[in-house]
Each structure stands twice: as C-alpha cells, then as structure tokens.
Design a binder for these strands. Structure first.
Lengths: 143, 143
DNA sequence: AACCTACTTGCAAACAATTTGCATTTGTGT
DNA sequence: ACACAAATGCAAATTGTTTGCAAGTAGGTT
C-alpha cells in the first residue's frame, strides 16, 4: 500500500477487508465520486476522467465491486440512468425536471419518524431507502 | 369511442385531451397495469399479455405516451429495471432484497410534513417524488 | 529488491435494453 | 363511408451492460 490520497483512507480499509486491490483506476473513480456534488452515472464518471484514463468496462466493474462492499450506493435520478454516490454521503435529492440540476438534501428527524411508522406498520426490516423529489428549482420557476 | 372497459374511463379522458387514440393495445396495457399489485416493468407487462398480442415496441411507445400525459408514473424498484404504475395509485414501496417481493404502502401525514419542510428549505417547487425502502420482509427475516 | 500469484485491466465481442425508420393499418371526426 | 393523422409491427440502428481472455500489476512473501 503506497502513497494514496489521504481522504479516501476509510475506503482502503473496506478494500483490504474484501481483498480488493487499491489500483490507480479505483483511486481515480473514488476521487471523482468524492468530489461530486450529486450522484453520478457511469457515463458521467467516465466523462470526468481523462479520455482513455480508465476503460468504461473497468468503471462498470469497479462500481459493481464498490457496491458489493457497500462503499457506494445506487440512486435513480431519472428515467435513463442509474447514478452512484459514495456511501456515508447518503441523502435525498431534488431533481429539477426543467434544467436537470440535482441538489442534495440531508435527511432530518421528520423523515426518521416516517420510516419508524412504516417499520411498525409493515413488519419490514428496513435497511436502506431511496428518495427523490422531482420539480422545478427556484431559477426555473421564473421561466 | 366504442365499448371499452368501463373502469378505465378516467384514462380515456386523458387520451382525448391529448388527441391519443384509444386502441386495443393501449386498453390492454392499461388493464394489465390496473390489475397489477405492484409496479411492472416493460418485460413484465409484455409477459402478462398473450404472446404476440402486443409488440414490445408498442409497449415501450405506449408507456412513453402514458407518461407524457401523466397517466403512469415510473419507479425504480431495483438496479436493473424501471417499473411503471398507473397514476393516482401513487404509493411508496417496500422492496424485499431477499425474495424481491414488492409491497405497496400508502403515504401518510408524516411524509407530507417532511415534504413541506423540504419545500420551505429549498425553494423547490415539488411536483412529484419517488420513495422506495429496501430491506427484509417479515417472512424473510426468519431465514 | 526480486518473486509469485491472484486480482485487475483493456479490448473485442456478446448480450440486452431501448429507440428509430418506414410501410401498412386503424381510430375518429366529418 | 371518407380522409387523415395517429398507431402498429417488423427490422434494424443505437445505446447500455456483461463476459471471455490474454496481458499487466498490486501486495504479500522470500
């Protein structure tokens, strides 16, 4: 284990536990996700990287691996694409249906309440969830 | 406009407003969605119909048209597929990650509260949302 | 520091999902 | 019954995702 970016160290631990190697491609992909302000699709991750830096097949495989070790979470921002964000950065999303901007929102007590009610009513053991709001962002409401 | 199934009449109105024709294929697709107990993917809709009854391309186009006039809503129950349900039957979903069962849950005040808070905080004009919980259903918790 | 081996990668190609073009058919207002 | 725009099926194009395999590499061991 060489000199890898410091701020990703929590992920390196996950890697080691799963016997996954810390490769340049994986570090770059983690960095891209880390710097993102919203979940990214495979295509978007690919676009963030230098052309030819990482093959898109490798991105697919890396994301898949990261999901298995719970290092990334999948969300669904629109009809077309699946998008991914680093675990531990879980939040809900506001998706503007006009300009396609995506804004993160942090969950609060009110939502926890709702989840508790559902749990009680359903007998379901809830492990995770995905919530997206669709509408118009402030700027787009003026047009 | 001939003798079409009575219970779908609210949709016929939407069709006419949008100058969409009421065809056998569309009626059948609406029926399938109407009888479904959970959102269905394109493939599932296709499977519900008699073989060769409606071309899968037509299902794609029909669903797309129905979405445009807000007659169906899209949800994302799992990583692979998009699923659809009739509008007006909007609810949240409990997805069992073990047996893949999907259970509908009806939203309640608690959730409305949460949405209100988000609206106030963000300045977003929320038109719609999508919420899925993932976890283990009661039976699967025992295994 | 060189070595070994299992894990990774890129590339090509298979596969699957979704969309498009076009000739033909059909619903619906007149 | 007629006329025309809209809808359908089929084939083919496009796009998204997965798989097979030979070559390359991380990271523990000597």
């Amino acid at each position: 284990m060489k000199n890898h970016p410091e701020h990703l160290k929590t992920f390196y631990a996950l890697f080691q536990r799963a016997r996954l190697k810390i490769t340049p491609a994986r570090v770059r992909i983690l960095e891209v996700l880390h710097h993102a302000h919203a979940p990214l699709s495979i295509q978007q991750i690919s676009a963030e990287l230098e052309t030819g830096e990482v093959d898109i097949v490798t991105i697919y495989r890396t994301i898949s691996a990261l999901q298995k070790i719970n290092a990334v979470k999948q969300t669904h921002l629109n009809a077309k694409e699946r998008a991914y964000e680093l675990a531990g950065e879980h939040h809900h999303h506001l998706v503007c249906t006009s300009c396609n901007a995506v804004e993160d929102i942090t969950l609060n007590d009110q939502f926890e309440q709702y989840q508790k009610i559902i749990t009680k009513k359903s007998g379901f053991k809830i492990m995770d969830h995905s919530l997206e709001f669709f509408g118009l962002c402030a700027p787009c409401q003026k047009n």
